[in-house]
């Protein structure tokens, strides 16, 4: 267990918590010179550890010097106004930004202590360990069974058809979808309802047994009932996986996450225990956002 690295913000002068004067911290006049993250960016039991991550899209500096941990068996929520770089940061964690033309990522990102940014790292096994669920459900135009079997098939996780079926069934069960689809596994995945599709995508992601699951606004296209089901699912999944979830819903962040990170214009403003962030935000911007003054 790599428990050595539990650093806390307080020990780091650069990240010293500082409560700013309201005038200075207004979102419009937010001063880039005085940036820095408030709260504890480090986790006691990190699964992923990012240090000084910067992302550029061409000339645009989309993420500035972000350092953040994703702990084991925790749900980390990322919140912030639109365009602040949440998705961009999330996509760094399994190097999905590699597929974006003109996107450059620098900094250090460790998964279980190993740098995933190194040039010789193959993204294929990396993404098998860090799975991803997208904002819009994107089932493949194949049957439900084939959708879930996709990952195990390409990665060769099942030695036999029986084993494959077992993986599919257990993934669907874990995704709380089994009961709804068990009679129509051969039907196309695109024929399911939006919420079912999203759970199918989650089942698809957990079928390859990743360590970390990244979710980019997984409920934004869904109705409240489907959302509730997925939130419950996330809570269950936490037992086995680390989860990073981007959300625009403060309530959702509060309901499902243990830690919350607040992003603003490419900066990580504040990180902390979810309970604390929502009750007692330390940074003015966080407070403004949470209380709904902008964003």
């Amino acid at each position: 267990m790599e428990a050595q690295a539990s650093q806390f913000m307080a020990e780091n002068p650069e990240h010293a918590p500082a409560r700013r004067r309201p005038a200075e911290a207004d979102s419009a006049t937010y001063d880039r010179e005085h940036r820095g993250t408030v709260g504890e960016v480090r986790s006691e039991v990190p699964r992923m550890r990012c240090t000084a991550v910067n992302v550029h899209y061409g000339d645009k500096h989309a993420i500035r010097d972000v350092s953040l941990d994703v702990g084991k068996n925790e749900v980390l929520a990322m919140i912030g106004p639109s365009g602040c770089g949440k998705s961009t940061f999330l996509r760094c964690l399994n190097r999905m930004n590699d597929t974006v033309v003109g996107c450059r990522v620098s900094g250090e990102i460790l998964l279980d202590g190993k740098d995933i940014m190194a040039p010789d790292v193959d993204v294929v096994p990396l993404r098998a360990r860090v799975g991803m669920v997208f904002q819009k459900p994107n089932p493949f135009p194949k049957s439900i069974f084939e959708n879930v079997a996709f990952g195990p098939r390409i990665h060769g996780l099942a030695q036999s058809q029986a084993e494959l079926e077992e993986i599919v069934v257990s993934s669907l069960q874990k995704a709380n979808l089994w009961g709804e689809v068990k009679d129509r596994l051969a039907h196309p995945g695109t024929g399911l309802s939006g919420g079912q599709q999203q759970r199918l995508c989650i089942a698809r992601a957990i079928a390859i047994q990743p360590e970390v699951i990244l979710m980019d606004e997984p409920c934004s296209a869904l109705d409240p009932i489907s959302t509730a089901k997925i939130e419950q699912l996330i809570d269950e999944l936490r037992r086995n996986y680390s989860i990073c979830i981007v959300t625009h819903s403060m309530q959702q962040a509060a309901r499902v996450s243990q830690r919350t990170a607040y992003f603003h214009l490419g900066d990580l403003i504040e990180v902390g225990e979810t309970d604390r962030i929502f009750v007692k935000p330390q940074h003015q911007l966080t407070e403004d956002y949470i209380t709904g003054r902008f964003g």
């Binding site: 193959d122 294929v124 096994p125 098998a128 360990r129 990665h155 060769g156 996780l157 390859i208 047994q209």
Partner: peptide, 14 residues
């Protein structure tokens, strides 16, 4: 435990 197992398989197929 199963997690490690599955990575071994992924690596083996690479």
């Amino acid at each position: 435990q199963p997690v490690r197992d599955s990575f071994a398989r992924v690596e083996a197929g690479m």
